[in-house]
Amino acid sequence: MSRLELRHVRKAFGGLDVLADISLSVGAGEFVSILGPSGAGKSTLFQLLTGAEHGEGEMLFDGARLDDHGRHFAFMPQRDALMPWRRILDNATLGLEVQGIRRKAARARVAPLFAEFGLAGFERHFPAQLSGGMRQRAALLRTVVQERDMLLLDEPFGALDALTRTAMQRWLEQMWRHHRWTALLITHDVREAVFLSDRIYVLSARPARIVREIEVPLPRPRSLGGDAARQASALEAEILDIILNPNPSKGHDHD
C-alpha cells in the first residue's frame, strides 16, 4: 500500500487553474521527485499536503483520508529558515518544542544526531557562522528529528552554489540509504531528481498535469562516474526532452 496517494487533485486561485489533475503515489521508504518547469505549481502541491491551502480531489495517507496534515509530514522549505538569534542546537529543537516537548528533552533527542549530520562541534554556533551547506544540514536535522511519517523537501538545495549543491545531493543520498526515509522532493533540477530518486513525476507547465512517470533504475549508492553516470545522463536528456516538448495527452506513461 502506498503511504501517500493523490487522486485527481486540482487547485485554482480565483480564475487561475494551477493544478489541473494530479494523481500520484509514494510508497514506504521510497524517494520520489516531482519535476517540472518554474511556476508549474509544485510548491502549491506541498501547500495542499501541509494544509496551508485546500483544493479538490482525494488525498490519502495509509489508505485513509488525509485530514491531520501536521501529524504525517515534516516539511523542509527552499530556504533553511534558521532563526538567526538561536544557536544551531536550539534551531534544531524548534520543531520538537512546537510539538510541546520541553527544551531539555528536545535537546537530548537532537544532540546525538549532530555528528551524523556533520555538525559536531557547531551546536553553540549561530546560523551566520555556518556555511550554506552546513545550514542546510541543520535545517534537515530539524526536519527529520520530528520523526514524522514522511519528509516533504521543497527545492532544499536551490539556493546553494553548484559545487555545494552537488556535495549536498551526495550527502542526502547517503543519509537516505541509511535511514530509508519516505521522501517527496519537488525540484526543477533534472540532474538532482535523477540522482536522488526512485521514481520521478514530470509535470507540464501550468495548469499542471503529470505528463510522465519515470522509474529511475540506477543502482545505489549512486555514482557520478562509470556506466551509471552514462545511464543517468541519458535519462536526464530524456526528461529534458519531455519537459521541453510535453505531450499531456499521453497521461501516465510508465518507463
Rank of each mutant, 00 (worst) to 15 (best):
Ser223His: 11
Leu163Val: 14
Pro156Ser: 06
Ala232His: 12
His178Arg: 15
Leu240Glu: 08
Arg148Tyr: 12
Gly226Met: 04
Leu224Gln: 13
Val202Thr: 07
Lys250Gln: 13
Ala167Val: 00
Leu224Val: 10
Ile242Asp: 00
Arg170Leu: 13
Ala237Leu: 08
Ile186Gly: 06
Ala234Tyr: 03
Pro207Trp: 00
Leu235Tyr: 03
Arg230His: 12
Gly251Val: 07
Leu184Ser: 08
Glu238Ala: 04
Ala229Gly: 10
Asp241Phe: 00
Ala208Val: 09
Pro221Thr: 01
Asp189Ala: 10
Pro156Phe: 04
Ser197Ala: 14
Arg222Cys: 07
Glu236Ile: 06
Leu151Gln: 11
Ile243Trp: 03
Phe195Ser: 02
Asp161Thr: 10
Phe157Arg: 07
Ala159Val: 02
Pro217Asn: 09
Ala228Tyr: 08
Ile200Asp: 10
Glu236Arg: 08
Thr166Ala: 15
Ile242Phe: 01
Leu244Ile: 01
Ala228Glu: 15
Asp189Lys: 06
Glu236Phe: 00
Asp241Glu: 09
Lys250Arg: 13
Arg206Thr: 10
Ile239Pro: 00
Ala229Lys: 09
Asp198Ser: 09
Ile243Ala: 00
Phe195Asn: 03
Ser204Lys: 01
Arg177Met: 15
Leu235Gln: 06
Ala167Phe: 04
Val211Leu: 04
Ser249His: 08
Asp161Trp: 07
Leu163Tyr: 07
Gly226Val: 06
Leu185Glu: 11
Glu155Tyr: 02
Trp171Asn: 13
Leu224Cys: 11
Pro246Cys: 05
Arg165Leu: 02
Ile242Pro: 00
Leu163Thr: 05
Arg206His: 00
Leu244Val: 00
Val216Pro: 11
Thr164Ser: 13
Leu240Ser: 04
Ala205Asn: 12
Gln174Asn: 07
Leu184Phe: 06
Ala162Gly: 08
Arg199Val: 03
Val211Met: 07
Pro246Trp: 02
Val211Lys: 01
Glu215Tyr: 11
Asp227Ser: 13
Leu240Phe: 02
Pro219Cys: 04
Asp241Cys: 01
Gln169Thr: 10
Phe195Thr: 06
Ile243Lys: 01
Arg148Leu: 09
Val190Glu: 05
Ile239Leu: 14
Asp189Val: 03
Ile186Gln: 06
Gln231Ala: 15
Pro246Tyr: 04
Arg230Ser: 11
Pro219Val: 02
Gln169Ile: 04
Pro246Phe: 00
Arg220Gln: 08
Ala232Thr: 08
Ile243Val: 12
Glu236Ala: 04
Met150Arg: 11
Val202His: 02
Ile214Glu: 13
Pro246Met: 01
Asp154Phe: 03
Gly158Thr: 01
Arg148Ile: 01
